[in-house]
Design a protein around this nucleic acid. Structure first.
Lengths: 196, 196
DNA sequence: GTCTATAGCTGGATAGAC
DNA sequence: GTCTATCCAGCTATAGAC
């Protein structure tokens, strides 16, 4: 007997918000349209979330949680050569973006429309970049990664991953093309690597 | 006798819009706040611009025009080695960003909040990237630049330049630090170069 | 928890005097 | 060209029945 998996209205609202925020922008999406898209009454939204702002923050936190779950798998792999660790991180990140395009686009809009308190943004970013920072630091001590300033490297690496993710979202056919996939990682790696 | 340079209210409105769009996001900036910031009456804004949308597009076009003016200087330099052409393009772009931080931030928000018709965005991008494309193509025929797919390279290069620009805007002291400046260009160049 | 109805406000845009 | 005054649509959020 199959278990009927009921999706709560709260989850429906979060999902609809994610989709519409991605399509129209956050400020440009009304709570009314979110409720309508979720097939839920207007007032129900404000039963589950105190305000539109609360909804946005809940969505952001759930997405960051999901992403970090997907990427934390890297922890087992600290014995691998640095380049392969980097490749794994890159693959996991891009795969997550391909599978959750709305989430990646939403994250981009969140930072562009600065809708979040700085404290929340900084906390999420610290956590998000910590794996990358470990890889770079280790690579530098091994003489495999260039000694550019860390803050600059983190910004560039993060930006390259997001750009690649968005590129493959917008050109989804190309993600199965190994030339594109390999090229994107090569550019990422060679920007920071010392040899090869 | 000094000429009194009067700044028209239209220009004041454009300037105020640029500043406020950058600070608060485009959708999140009201026409009333723009008029107030410009020291101009509400109705005056709609005398100069048919709608908020028209204002946004006029601003975008004027910025793109300004940017291309600054960068077209590269045309004289086709005799230089490719790496130096790339450096010149990079320097001019970053310098423009440092001198016009609001403009760079506005451009970022325009693409993130997709407020412009696709046609306008594509036209601007084509023009913007043509110099970069020429440099890459020439570099490839000379065997100096890697043969990754052009569309991917253009996206990544553009993103690296914007990221560096925003980084130096947010950390303005570091722009006079040659280690940072050189590192940022090195990452840009090594991502696409074949040999150092 | 979910709905309907609506309050209360803000935003883009217009009309018309000067 | 610039202003003041104002219309009206659409938004967030609340109240109260079920």
């Amino acid at each position: 007997m199959a278990v009927i998996q009921t999706i709560s209205k709260r989850e429906k609202l979060l999902h609809s918000a994610l989709v519409l925020f991605g399509e129209n922008g956050i400020h440009n999406t009304s709570t009314a349209s979110i409720a309508k898209h979720a097939g839920v009454a207007n007032g129900t939204l404000f039963h589950h979330f105190d305000s539109k702002q609360t909804l946005i923050e809940a969505l952001y936190i759930s997405i960051k949680h999901d992403l970090s779950q997907c990427i934390l798998l890297t922890r087992d792999t600290q014995a691998l050569p640095i380049k392969e660790q980097a490749k794994l991180l890159w693959d996991l990140s891009i795969d997550w973006g391909i599978k959750n395009p709305s989430s990646l686009i939403f994250c981009q809009k969140v930072s562009a429309e600065n809708v979040l308190p700085l404290s929340l943004r900084l906390a999420a970013m610290k956590q998000e970049l910590s794996i990358l920072e470990t890889i770079i630091t280790t690579g530098q001590t091994q003489g495999v990664v260039a000694n550019y300033p860390m803050d600059l490297m983190l910004e560039q690496c993060k930006s390259q991953i997001i750009t690649s993710g968005l590129f493959f979202i917008n050109n989804s056919l190309l993600y199965s093309d190994n030339v594109y996939k390999q090229s994107a990682f090569d550019m990422f790696w060679r920007a920071i690597a010392i040899n090869d």
